[in-house]
Design a protein around this nucleic acid. Structure first.
Lengths: 292, 292
DNA sequence: ACATCACATCACCTCAACTTATAGCAATCA
DNA sequence: TGATTGCTATAAGTTGAGGTGATGTGATGT
């Protein structure tokens, strides 16, 4: 109906200040511009909205009715803009992350903690899935970004390498003697092995590695989390394959011992994946900046 | 903050249709215009509001937040415009009238009745005051227009003559014999007179008339309304001075008889007064058009 | 490989909205 | 009463924001 919403801005200011001149001053334009705009608005609505008096203007009854609505509308716009601003300031907002259990627990957690303390207004939602599922979730828009094990090849994704992790085999005191020397792979496979369940990308990585060296492995026990692997290894159930970076403490305390291999596992990398050309929430963008 | 509300209109349409092209079509402009406006809006707010996909656009989380508010705002504008429209169609609105008791009852009422039946949505408010008070009320903006006895001289008012009324003296059967002849003013004053209370413009008019002819009148009874005057006259309390137009029925039915005067009271006029150069509500304007 | 569909970009143009300047009007004051 | 002040209205002239049209790009489905 009314073809220019800017007229309503002028109407709003004019009605509030009761003066076209003042409204013009507040809007940093000249008075004739306001006079003209109000005239256009009135013409467009088909009736006067103001009484013109020698000491300013006053709303007509129709103008008053209109003002009530325009005021509301203007307030809503204002609130909307403020909300956006707050989101930019990370006083508000949301960040949806996809990551595997292990990476979440041992890699993401400290950063999340710090971020949350700095920006308590930002809601954080973490979805724990395997790497392929995380990628899928990302592509369907369910998360802002994912933390995954590299390599992955997906042309539609932006992949940032973050962190190199090294896998290794560790054992408790019972197998300490193995830590003295460098063990050939074949020898290792003769001992009871503790591995993550099939399905995780870490497990896939291990399986491929051994397959590549034509060694068949038969895990003694398969477990769901790194924490459990560590616990079982410590109790002497066997030799666990874990990410060394994540058990640095246990190694340092001497509760676990690394078993050096003649053919060490190649290092892997953690990656931060986002959708190419798709903007993510400010919160997520700022969080990613803080990740190594 | 955002310097052009028109951008929000485009944002609204784009968000609703999920397509810049469709939004452009709905707004009767070209797609580049919308693309450009959205870009400006995003730049102005400092962040993307849409994902651009090959099959259209989708709101980002920030865009979604903004949209909720813009939607509200847009709705309010729409409602405001519709309300104005309804007021123009007289489906809604208000009309404040000032008029004396007598004029209201005997002149205004039938028109009000018809108007109210035609436009039941329009609220009517009548303030009963004397002519000077009505004029005052009008100047202070308390009413849209007034129905008053002319003449009045007020440069700031627009005065429209409406209706000529004639005053006259009437009596019931008891004084019927007086109706046979034409009575000199002096003779009339010898009979008991029933007049309106001092203060009404009708009474002032009568007093001035007799004063002008150097005749002193001493009303037997002073009453507050024409209806009462008529009632008292009918019962034989004396001769009442009333507006003949308003008691045509009683005269026709022979319940009252007009006493012809040698010097008849000059005719008066009813006027419709409005403030000069000040717009009145549509309802009032349309009502005035219907008055004779 | 090709057609399609959506958004992005570019160059150009036009007119709506601005500005400056001035007039008109009513109220107020010396 | 004439001068002044503080509004809004009007007129004329200028300008750049917003619009158009043509074209580019990238993804998708046949």
């Amino acid at each position: 109906m009314v073809e220019n919403l800017e007229w309503y801005r002028m109407f709003y200011y004019a009605a509030q200040s009761g003066s076209l001149t003042k409204a013009a001053a507040e809007l940093n334009i000249t008075q004739p511009a306001v006079t003209y705009a109000i005239k256009r608005l009135e013409a467009s609505l088909g009736g006067q909205l103001f009484f013109r008096t020698p000491k300013g203007i006053r709303l007509t009854s129709e103008g008053e009715v209109l003002f009530r609505y325009v005021e509301q509308a203007y307030n809503f716009i204002g609130i909307g803009e403020r909300k956006i601003f707050e989101m930019h300031q990370l006083q508000d907002g949301e960040m949806k992350i996809g990551a595997g259990d292990t990476l979440c627990r041992h890699y993401l957690l400290p950063y999340l903690e710090e971020f949350h303390n700095t920006y308590p207004g930002v809601k954080i939602q973490v979805t724990n899935r395997t790497t392929p599922e995380t990628v899928d979730l990302l592509k369907r828009g369910g998360i802002d970004f994912g933390i995954v094990n590299l390599p992955i090849t997906e042309p539609s994704l932006d992949i940032r390498e973050s962190f190199a992790i090294e896998d290794g085999f560790v054992a408790g005191p019972k197998y300490r003697f193995l830590a003295e020397e460098t063990l050939p792979l074949k020898k290792l496979a003769e001992h009871p092995l503790l591995l993550l369940e099939k399905g995780s990308s870490t497990r896939t990585f291990i399986d491929r590695f051994f397959a590549k060296h034509q060694i068949e492995i038969r895990p003694e026990i398969e477990l769901g989390s790194v924490d459990l692997l560590v616990e079982f290894a410590r109790k002497g159930f066997g030799i666990a394959c874990v990410v060394k970076n994540f058990i640095a403490d246990d190694l340092a305390r001497g509760e676990l011992h690394e078993i050096k291999l003649a053919t060490p596992l190649p290092p892997r990398k953690i990656g931060i994946v986002t959708l190419k050309h798709v903007p993510i929430s400010h919160a997520a963008a700022r969080f990613i900046e803080r990740l190594p």
